[in-house]
Simulated scan of single mutants.
Amino acid sequence: MTPMARPTPRERIGYAFGRVLPPHLHDWVEHDLTGPGATRRYIVRGLLPLIPLLALFLLIPGPLWVIGSMMMLLLIPYVYFLIALTYVYRRHRLISHDLDPGLMSRREQERKDRERAEYKRRFGH
């Protein structure tokens, strides 16, 4: 089995900002969007641009609890919608790379089938 082609650092940065990768990297894109850890990678990529913005709040004079509260007013809804739109965003990225959006459903079904088989193995039901 040949190793999967990986994007260069420049391509990876472009990909993080929404750019479409060339066709020879579609296996990597598929793994990135549907493979193990895909949701974690998506959330980390979504939170990284927010860090400098939150750091700007530290320049505001005042008690730390007020600054922290202002940060939370931005962070909590951002994370909520980031998580809520995970499936939609990852499906959109598959479509933009001309990959089958049904991969999301198939991977999820495979995971559920594995969990069901493990449950039956452990508990005999």
Rank of each mutant, 00 (worst) to 15 (best):
D98E: 14
P22I: 03
G46T: 06
F57M: 14
F57L: 15
K112Q: 15
S96Y: 08
G35F: 00
L82S: 08
P63Q: 14
H92L: 07
K112V: 10
I51Y: 08
D100A: 09
P61F: 13
I95Q: 14
T39M: 15
Y87G: 08
G18C: 11
R114F: 04
R116P: 03
L33N: 06
R12Q: 07
L21V: 11
D113A: 14
P23A: 08
A117I: 06
G62P: 01
P61W: 12
P63L: 13
S105C: 03
L85D: 14
R93Y: 11
G18D: 09
P9E: 14
E30T: 10
M4S: 02
S96E: 12
R12W: 06
F123D: 09
R45V: 14
P63F: 10
Y15L: 11
E30G: 09
L103W: 06
R114W: 04
I43G: 00
R116F: 03
M70I: 13
T2S: 02
M71P: 00
M104I: 15
R107P: 01
Y87A: 15
K120Y: 04
R40C: 02
H92K: 04
E110C: 05
T39K: 14
L103I: 12
R107Y: 13
S96Q: 13
P63M: 08
R6H: 07
P22F: 01
T8P: 00
M71G: 06
T34C: 15
L99M: 02
Y119I: 05
F17I: 13
L82C: 08
A55S: 14
L64Q: 05
P7W: 03
A16C: 04
H97L: 10
L103N: 12
G102H: 08
V79T: 07
P22A: 03
F81K: 06
I51V: 15
P52C: 06
R114E: 10
W28G: 04
H24Q: 09
P7T: 03
M71E: 06
T86V: 15
I76H: 00
G46M: 04
G102A: 11
A16T: 01
A117G: 04
L54F: 05
Y80F: 14
